[in-house]
Simulated assay, not measured.
Amino acid sequence: MSRLVVEGVSKSFGATKVLDHLDLDVPNGTAAAVVGASGCGKTTLLRVIAGFEGPDTGSVQLGSETVVRQGLCVPPQRRRIGYVAQDGALFPHLSVADNIAYGLRTGLRGAVDRQRRGRDRPRVIELLAMVSLDPDYADRKPHQLSGGQQQRVALARALARKPDLMLLDEPFSALDTGLRATTRQTVADTLRAAGMTSILVTHDQEEALSFAEQVAVMRAGRFTHVGPPQQVYHQPADLFTARFLGDCVLLDALCEADIAKSVLGPVPVQPGAPTGEVTLMIRPEQLAAQVIGADEPHSGRVTAVDFRGPDVILTIDLAEGAGTVRVRRTGIAAPITGDRVRLSIHGPAVAYCPLRSH
Rank of each mutant, 00 (worst) to 15 (best):
V263C: 04
G195L: 11
F211M: 13
D204I: 12
G148W: 07
Q214E: 14
A188I: 02
E170V: 00
A154C: 04
S146R: 04
A181H: 14
L167A: 01
T241F: 09
H225S: 12
K261S: 12
Q214A: 11
A160T: 12
Q214W: 05
P268K: 12
Q151T: 10
L251R: 08
H234C: 15
L239Q: 15
L168R: 08
P142Y: 09
L264N: 14
P228S: 13
A193G: 09
P236Q: 08
D204R: 07
S146N: 07
E170P: 01
L155M: 13
F211N: 01
D252E: 14
V263P: 02
A220M: 10
D238A: 07
D189I: 05
L251I: 07
F223C: 03
A156S: 02
R184N: 04
G148T: 03
K162P: 00
A216R: 02
Q185P: 08
P229Y: 00
G246C: 08
V201C: 03
S210G: 08
C255A: 13
D136W: 10
A242K: 11
D258R: 01
D258Q: 07
E213I: 10
V226C: 06
L165T: 05
S173A: 14
L168A: 02
R161G: 15
D164E: 15
L165W: 04
L145Y: 06
F172V: 02
D247H: 10
I199C: 06
D189T: 11
Q231G: 13
E206I: 09
Q151V: 06
L264V: 06
A158M: 03
D176E: 09
L251V: 10
L254C: 15
L209H: 06
T202F: 00
E213M: 01
G227M: 08
R140T: 00
